[in-house]
Design a protein around this nucleic acid. Structure first.
Lengths: 209, 209, 209, 209
DNA sequence: CGTTAACCGAGACGGTACGTCTTGTCTTCTT
DNA sequence: AAGAAGACAAGACGTACCGTCTCGGTTAACG
């Protein structure tokens, strides 16, 4: 005899329509890019994806969640397109400053890539006001990138280029956070010069040496 | 300049009801604190303020704008309650590190003040996704505070405690932005220790001296 | 100070939009006639009337209620178009049989009038399954017509053409109900001959005299 | 007759699951009785019967059709439980009035039997608005009962208790239809007195003898 | 000091989207 | 091949807000 579950039994993942999922990702990213996050609606996504609303509600619980997965998928796809080693480490040429500047320049480019701009802004914004989304955004999108900096700084510490008592997790915020804030809050222009300067300040401080 | 009559002529500011404005501010702040920004609606604000919806639409063009003014009003009020000189300058004891740490500790406290938390998060979030709001948020709320740091850093440069070629506008981001990001994006805990560390790293860098 | 009513205060009838109400009546009757009652939806009525759904839900609580009022309105309109005395009485020529046959022939015509057919069928059907609607249908639509028969039969009793112990309320069912059932349940054809026969049977019975 | 393949070929009746059919009948009747016809859904029937939706759609084309068969089945069952001869004829004691009154009293009882009430109302209602269902309802459920009255009236005609020119098919409507209408449309109370009166009026008319 | 033009509270209006429910079809796996 | 299960596209449900509009009433500046 079957389970007479009153209501929501979890949907059966094995029977999920891959086609629909892809269409929903595409529709969500497209709409966010074209009309912006607030005007992107679940109904709109469903219509554009040629999908019933229920198919969205069955698998996600909110617009933010859909967009999060869509964006993660997009990121993975982009990572796959780029080289395989590229994404999982920061180059170590022995020159910490140079290496950091190089990565930050790539980040600047990415922040201006229109494919990424709209959805990541939207997710960041949602995360500010919705802690659950914020923590998910942190864990799934930010954390992996930050860890690369931690690794690189640790290597620099081993090489004697960074003081051993420095906490890498905090150190990286000296260049990551300023960039993030300028991007998120329009607190200043974002240029290669700017990120280069950040690295210099972070490495040597602002006090006389 | 003439009447920019697209439909309605501009409302007459002199006849504006002070009582209604106050009630709307209170209602907006109260609702954002109690139910969160997304669930705060113009209808809700109007109802709670005992005000017609049109009275809101007459003077503001969006929920964000209402909240922005309400929050500015709240900030001014709070500033008035605190000392008069307190707010318009950062103490200069001659010890830059100590002065910065002191201010940042106050900031930490303020970030955790529930009266400020909800509305400023909401505005920040809205600003991320809505550039107009973002720039207004920057200009009206952030910029004045940041300017205090610029002034203090300049004084330190004059006193020879900061290298002269350092750009104060960027320098301040070394401690402000990390704190801001942790607060906005839940990327880490916010403590006095943390802000103290930020100041130390910012002043002396992470490289061996 | 105003009534801080938690929710549904009754809507203000004086500010009701006459235009919307008329448009809703027309749309409801039109749709029921064109696509049938089950496929007539509140959304469809609203769309066709160029009206927000809430405007329907504000004033009516169900599709059936809308249609009931629309149909009542239609009936009143039709009555106004016909003569004024016509509708409020059954002619008394002194010949009960002839008078009844005449009215029933009119009824037969009306039952076949496509303007009336669809909505009255729909309401009757809804009334069968929904007692509240059924009683309202009876009270507002059927009862007034039936009363005319009661009056005519009473007059016939006074004239000695109907036995005094006869209950007019039951007597009228001898011709009204058969016609109603044939119409409602497709239990037989509806013709002038048929209604004439009903009147004859009803007046003199089926037993030998 | 050929395979009416529009999409699927006709299902193979020989392999049909008797258990499922019974479960579906029970579920349909149960739900109609408990929550009413409009709230009875195909999904609900399938769930309650522990049956896939397709199993219903395979064998029936609508909710009404399911209920019709379920109700027919119920009626046959009830008939089998009662005596065998009881149901297929109306007693002929020689006294037409008494015989009709007796049967009508039984009908009154049956109309109030909760097992029959809900589904037969539902089917009647559906039939009012859906001619196909209406005609099926008439043919399968009403007609057989009405035929019994035709037979009994014919016998009475042979016995000289009913005028020979009377059409039995119309005559029976003099008592059946009023009762039906009171039941369907809540146009009046249903009592033994009432049905007795109907028979009297029908036999002797309302005019002075 | 009365007229009058505006703001005001209130809330009806045409809309859009919400999240849920059901329809009828389709697909997968089981019996 | 029928059946149990349930995902799917479609679309209506009734609710909540949007931003606009109209309606008295009240209130402050002007004539």
């Amino acid at each position: 005899m079957a389970t007479q579950s009153s209501k929501q039994s979890a949907p059966d993942t094995t029977r999920r329509s891959e086609k629909s999922r892809r269409a929903i990702y595409d529709a969500a990213l497209g709409l966010v890019a074209e009309v912006g996050y607030p005007k992107t609606t679940i109904e709109g996504i469903a219509a554009r994806a040629g999908v019933g609303k229920q198919t969205i509600y069955r698998w996600w619980s909110s617009k933010a969640e859909v967009l999060m997965e869509a964006f993660l998928d997009l990121s993975e796809q982009a990572a796959r397109e780029a080289g395989p080693e590229e994404t999982y480490t920061i180059a170590d040429t022995g020159d910490l400053a140079a290496d950091l500047k190089a990565v930050l320049r790539l980040t600047v480019d990415q922040l201006k890539d229109p494919r990424f701009e709209a959805p990541s802004r939207a997710l960041a914004a949602e995360g500010v006001v919705n802690e659950q989304v914020g923590r998910a955004f942190m864990a799934k999108l930010l954390e992996p990138s930050l860890q690369l900096y931690v690794d690189r700084v640790r290597a620099a510490q081993d090489a004697g280029q960074v003081r051993p008592e420095i906490d890498p997790r905090i150190a990286l915020e000296l260049w990551v956070s300023p960039l993030a804030q300028r991007w998120l809050q329009y607190t200043g222009p974002i240029t290669y010069d700017y990120t280069d300067t950040l690295v210099d300040y972070a490495l040597h401080g602002i006090a006389p040496r």
